[in-house]
Amino acid sequence: MTDIQNATPLCPDCGKPLEELVACGARDYFCNSCNELKSKTRVREANAAFFAASSKENH
């Protein structure tokens, strides 16, 4: 496994790792530090390099 596969996206507000919630094909992000769900759009914008690298590995 590479570092990208072991990494998790970071919260756009506090910068702490997010918990990924996957159910019925939907993927959501929860920050235990902020104690709230985070918008997928904001998470992707704040972690653009993470998602770009992970999409390259999936293809």
Results as ranks from 00 to 15, higher is better:
M1G: 11
M1F: 07
M1I: 07
Q5W: 06
N6T: 05
N6C: 04
A7G: 04
A7M: 09
T8P: 00
T8E: 01
T8V: 00
L10W: 05
C11A: 06
P12T: 02
C14E: 12
G15Q: 06
K16W: 03
E20K: 13
L21A: 11
L21F: 09
V22Y: 02
A23M: 08
C24N: 15
C24I: 12
C24D: 15
G25N: 13
G25K: 12
A26L: 15
F30M: 08
F30D: 09
F30W: 15
N32S: 06
S33L: 05
S33K: 08
N35Y: 14
N35A: 15
E36Y: 09
E36F: 09
L37K: 14
L37T: 11
L37V: 09
L37A: 11
K38G: 01
K38T: 04
K38A: 04
K38Q: 13
S39C: 13
K40F: 06
K40Q: 11
R42A: 09
R42W: 06
R42V: 02
V43F: 01
V43K: 00
R44P: 00
A46F: 01
N47S: 01
N47Y: 04
N47D: 00
A49P: 00
A49H: 03
F50C: 02
F51Q: 03
F51C: 05
A52R: 05
A52F: 05
S54D: 05
S54E: 10
S54C: 06
S54V: 07
S55C: 05
S55P: 00
E57A: 09
N58R: 14
N58K: 14
N58Y: 06
H59K: 15
H59T: 13
H59N: 13
